[in-house]
C-alpha cells in the first residue's frame, strides 16, 4: 500500500505514521516527495523520528549501530532533511529518548532546522519579490468581462507559485514555534 502525504511538522508526521502502524501495517519505505509504503503485518510496530544533522560516514555507522542494537530498524534518513526514521516491533522500550535532557536537545535540533529552512525561504522570497513589477500583472487589470476572468484563472497558479516561498516560510515558522513550545514545557517540568 502506498500513501502520499506531506508534512512540515515532524511530530505530526510521527503521529500519523504510528496511526497507520496501529491499523496493522509496517512501514517498508519512504521516498522523497512524501511517498510512504506500507505492508500488512500481524505484528505490532512503532516508529520514532529522530533529527540529526549531516553525519560523516563513521559517525553514521556508530549512530545506526547503537539504534540497531536496541532493535530499531533504519527505514530512511537523508542528510538533506536530517529526519531519521526508525521502526521496531513494540516491546518494553518503545522510545528513543529516556531522559528530559536528551529529549530537550532533540527539540533544539528541530528548532535549528526549522529556523534555517524558514530563513532560506525568506531569502528566496526576497529575491523573487524585490522585482515587484512581475507581481502585479498590469495587463490583467485592464481587461474586461470574460477575458478578465480567463486571464485571472490563468494567472492565479503563477501568483501562488510566487507566493509559495512565503507560505513555506510560515509553515517552517510554525514548526519552529511548536518545537519551542515542546522544549519550554520540557524545561519547566
Amino acid at each position: 500500500m502506498k500513501k502520499i502525504k506531506w508534512f512540515f511538522n515532524i511530530e505530526k508526521e510521527e503521529q500519523w505514521l504510528n496511526e497507520q502502524l496501529q491499523k496493522g501495517f509496517r512501514c517498508t519505505g519512504i521516498s522523497g516527495f512524501g511517498i510512504y509504503t506500507f505492508d500488512k503485518t500481524e505484528k505490532q510496530y512503532v516508529m520514532r523520528l529522530d533529527y540529526q544533522d549531516y553525519l560523516p560516514k563513521d559517525k553514521l555507522q556508530d549512530y545506526k549501530g547503537i539504534y540497531e542494537d536496541f532493535g530499531w530498524h533504519y527505514i530512511k534518513g537523508s542528510w538533506l532533511s536530517g529526519i531519521r526514521y526508525w521502526q521496531k516491533e513494540e516491546g518494553n522500550q518503545n522510545e528513543i529518548f529516556s531522559d528530559r535532557q536528551s529529549k530537550g536537545k532533540y527539540y533544539k535540533r528541530l528548532m535549528g532546522y526549522s529556523f534555517l529552512m524558514g530563513m532560506l525561504c525568506l531569502a528566496l522570497s526576497y529575491m523573487i519579490y524585490k522585482d515587484l513589477s512581475g507581481f502585479y500583472h498590469d495587463g490583467l487589470w485592464n481587461m474586461e468581462g470574460a477575458l478578465f476572468w480567463y486571464a485571472l484563472l490563468f494567472e492565479t497558479p503563477f501568483v501562488l507559485l510566487k507566493l509559495s516561498p512565503v507560505m513555506l516560510a510560515i509553515l517552517f515558522g510554525s514548526s519552529f514555534y511548536s518545537g519551542y513550545r515542546n522544549y519550554s514545557v520540557l524545561i519547566e517540568k
Binding site: 547503537i66 518494553n92 529518548f97 529516556s98 531522559d99 536528551s102 536537545k105
Partner: peptide, 12 residues
C-alpha cells in the same frame, strides 16, 4: 534506569 537508544548515543 533503562536508557533508550537516542539518549545513549547522544550521551556517548
Amino acid at each position: 534506569v533503562i536508557l533508550a537508544a537516542g539518549t545513549l548515543y547522544g550521551a556517548i
